[in-house]
Design a binder for these strands. Structure first.
Lengths: 345, 345
DNA sequence: GCGGCGCACTCGATCGTTTGGGAAGACAGG
DNA sequence: CCTGTCTTCCCAAACGATCGAGTGCGCCGC
């Protein structure tokens, strides 16, 4: 009666996380059945204003928050989509995810991100986790479903693959940019500037290399074709570039598979005492903010990342609503952004 | 009896996603009770080898995958940790998340990522979602729990805040680098090089600015103190830098609150025809791969990101195991990485 | 006065697991 | 043959929500 209530001293010893209130507690406090609480919370019209207020107030007072786990169990769906990305550091993915999330949000879907760090074992593990969580859909970024787990996953869960075109799995949608066109834009630009010895550093996207080859031949530059392979890192790009630039005669322009690799090319050029763009023109791919930065100012092919994210979201929502559709391919159009890393031959 | 079975034609029309097998189906197929299946799957020792094999085989044949939703419901925990990050594009966060995920994984916890895009409304929404999902823990990156939702969240869910030190909430652990020390390292370095007019561009971390002020005074350079505020983008940095560099007399060195801002400083310097480091020295903070890139080669203060991620994971796991602990502050030691953006005054 | 109809609300089954408390069988000791 | 102890397995009650199928009740028209 006097002094602090007994509970206060107990609370100091007791652990904080009291059990969260359930729909039951709300029902009891409001003096109604739990069904009615559910009805109110889901916005049913067949509830009297009187009771509705009682329920709402009880919920507020208790700090009630619906348990998505229980809801998912009975609904049979989680309203979650898993996005598996090979590399969070790649700014391309970050921006894509922005677009994806934005659109999913509009469809009442939540995005989970898993990153595989390019490791197939992690990929499998992450997908496994997503499947156990019973995500409603899957978005694979820079990851081709080749492992058994991944393929099995696609048969149970609506899936969209981004950035890989050679997937032939039933009911898997694909979002890519038209990177053959992208490559062509890059080569056309370089040819316009008078370049002939245009080399290419290929990464994982074989169609970009394809586009390079086609474009070179169209310009009757087949004899000048030079291709080097590199892993998608700055260092990988540097090594490949060194290999290219020490050839005799050396290329006057390099079209790199992506910006990170292009960055490595710039590094290599610098190390070899070549000025850009006077001695060497460089074109990247992806138009990441790296390339936009004024110190780098890299001519690059832009993929409309947000748009791609939105497309992926649209395809996925669609497929979640009606699985068993035929696979669709959504191809978006890239654009060349000219900056200061390219100049006359 | 002859010709294709009837089911085949139906299957063509029917939607793909057959219902996933449950523990029941496995039990039936193996001829045991569902409890036993559960026991086998959880590795109980009190199961005869005979039955264990039968169960395992049935599970394999059906492609059974446990339903984490149901499991979570009964266990009362999800083994999920929500990481709320203000900006996925910031490479600092990306690397931190790597460290975090790596460690959480060891503790059998899964990481979900939500990004708030610096928008408090999104923050609340993401946290709300995490709470409904009943995550076991919360990691807040570059986000101070100020909104009501966030504060309520911390009282129900073990929480670790990263990069914000001025949090005074019961039972919330904090991971930060000692950025007063970081600022001192930067200033000491510049003073060693003979700089006096050292300006600072402050971002959101006030303690860095504090460290700058303290260090300047310690070197008896109080009269030269110049501070400009900027939003944490390249453009924000550029504007602030232009403001600083057009002062008379202009600073010979700039210590920026982070690398992205420092990049803006480099841009501004370039635009104003100032050479780096001959006319202007620049120090950043965070040592992102931006600064490491050879074209930028920015002297920067390194926060041990992965280590911080691991610390956060450790604190969180600990708190999940035993909530109600007192709040702890884990402060990691930064390090100066000298590159080519700093030189003699 | 009574059958019929709507409205407001409740009951209880259900989702796929985990898990404590048995139950059945084998086997040994008395 | 009875009892007790293990081992090996099963039953059924949770977990927290949704939702179809009811149940009362007031009100209408005839």
């Amino acid at each position: 009666m006097s002094g602090p209530p007994v509970n206060t001293t107990i609370a100091e010893v007791d652990t904080l996380p009291r059990p969260r209130p359930t729909i039951r507690n709300v029902a009891e406090r409001a003096g109604v059945s739990k069904s009615l609480v559910s009805l109110v919370l889901r916005g049913s019209p067949h509830v009297s204003e009187h009771r509705r207020q009682a329920v709402l107030q009880a919920a507020r007072e208790l700090g009630y928050r619906p348990n998505a786990v229980a809801r998912s169990l009975v609904e049979g769906r989680t309203h979650l989509v898993g996005a598996l990305v090979a590399d969070l550091h790649n700014p391309f993915y970050a921006e894509f995810l922005d677009g994806l999330q934005e659109s999913l949000h509009g469809d009442g879907l939540r995005m989970l991100i898993g990153n595989s760090q390019w490791d197939p074992a992690f990929e499998d593990e992450a997908v496994e986790a997503f499947l156990e969580l019973r995500v409603d859909g899957l978005v694979l970024l820079g990851i081709a479903p080749t492992s058994e787990t991944l393929i099995e996953a696609t048969s149970y869960t609506p899936t969209v693959v981004v950035g890989e075109r050679d997937i032939e799995i039933d009911g898997v949608d694909i979002v890519v940019d038209d990177d053959q066109l992208g490559a062509r834009l890059a080569i056309d630009h370089l040819v316009d500037l008078g370049h002939k010895r245009i080399a290419h550093i290929e990464g994982t996207k074989s169609s970009r290399c394809e586009g390079y080859l086609v474009a070179m031949r169209r310009h009757a530059l087949a004899p000048y074709i030079m291709v080097e392979h590199a892993v998608s890192t700055e260092d990988g790009g540097r090594e490949a570039a060194v290999a290219l630039l020490t050839r005799e005669p050396r290329p006057t322009a390099v079209f790199a598979a992506n910006d990170v690799v292009a960055l490595g090319v710039l590094t290599a050029a610098h190390e070899l005492g070549l000025r850009v763009p006077e001695d060497l023109s460089v074109v990247g791919y992806d138009n990441t903010h790296l390339s936009a930065s004024r110190h780098i100012s890299l001519t690059s092919v832009d993929q409309p990342r947000r748009t791609m994210g939105r497309s992926a979201a649209a395809l996925l929502s669609d497929r979640i609503g009606d699985p068993g559709k035929l696979a669709r391919l959504r191809q978006v159009t890239p654009e060349l952004i000219v900056r200061r890393s390219t100049g006359p031959a």
